[in-house]
């Protein structure tokens, strides 16, 4: 019963989150649990907006990023979302 309640809350939250309007300017972030620090995103970024951060994983400087999405295509770990 407890598990069922938890799963229901998560599903309701998911539906609420997904049903909101999309923000007008998309923003990309790195899933640090998946990033392998290979640097492919740094190599492709045309805005010089990605650098290695404190935990050795890539970080996107949101003030420089122009949301072109090239980093998504080259990331071998599918870590950009």
């Amino acid at each position: 019963m407890k598990k069922f309640g938890l799963v229901s809350v998560i599903i309701i939250l998911l539906i609420l989150f997904i049903s909101c309007d999309k923000v007008s300017d998309p923003e990309y972030h790195i899933d640090k649990s998946a990033c392998s620090s290979c640097g492919a995103c740094i190599g492709i970024c045309p805005q010089d907006a990605i650098e290695i951060g404190k935990d050795g994983k890539a970080v996107i400087d949101q003030t420089k990023c122009n949301r072109c999405g090239k980093c998504i295509a080259v990331c071998p770990e599918n870590a950009i979302y």
Binding site: L13, L14, F17, I18, C20, K22, S24, E27, D31
Partner: peptide, 22 residues
Amino acid sequence: YVNRSCYDNETAQVYRVSNMLK
């Protein structure tokens, strides 16, 4: 699951920035 949402003061509306389910 990761969700990024934001709230706009002017329109008093919640927007989704990104959802990722893996």
